[in-house]
Amino acid sequence: MSIKVTVVVQKEDNWYVAKCLENSVASQGKTIEESIDNLREALELFYEDTTPENVNVPTFVTTMEVAL
């Protein structure tokens, strides 16, 4: 079985942090690719003994500008 998840990657100091929006699981790496690979492994472990809920719920991600 496989599922699709929404991932945000942000640079924090010398690391890239990848976070899954559906369940808040996060991981890091020295490169974007490494952070995503590490997140994939973390998600596989997270879902190892459980069945994901709401796997077909569409997610809308956007950016917005806020006046300060």
Rank of each mutant, 00 (worst) to 15 (best):
I3P: 03
V5A: 01
V5S: 02
T6F: 02
V7R: 09
V7C: 12
V7E: 11
E12A: 07
D13K: 11
N14T: 14
W15I: 02
V17A: 06
V17H: 04
A18I: 04
K19G: 01
C20F: 06
E22T: 04
E22S: 10
N23E: 10
S24E: 11
S24I: 01
A26F: 15
A26D: 10
S27P: 02
S27R: 01
Q28V: 05
Q28K: 11
G29S: 11
G29E: 12
K30S: 13
E33N: 15
E34L: 15
E34N: 10
S35K: 08
I36F: 11
L39K: 05
L39I: 10
R40C: 12
A42N: 04
L43F: 03
E44C: 11
F46M: 12
Y47K: 04
T50V: 13
T50A: 13
T50D: 08
P52M: 03
E53A: 07
E53Y: 01
V55Y: 08
N56I: 02
N56G: 11
V57I: 12
P58F: 03
P58H: 04
T59H: 06
T59I: 12
V61I: 12
T63Y: 05
M64N: 02
E65N: 09
V66H: 00
V66F: 00
A67R: 00
A67D: 00
L68N: 02
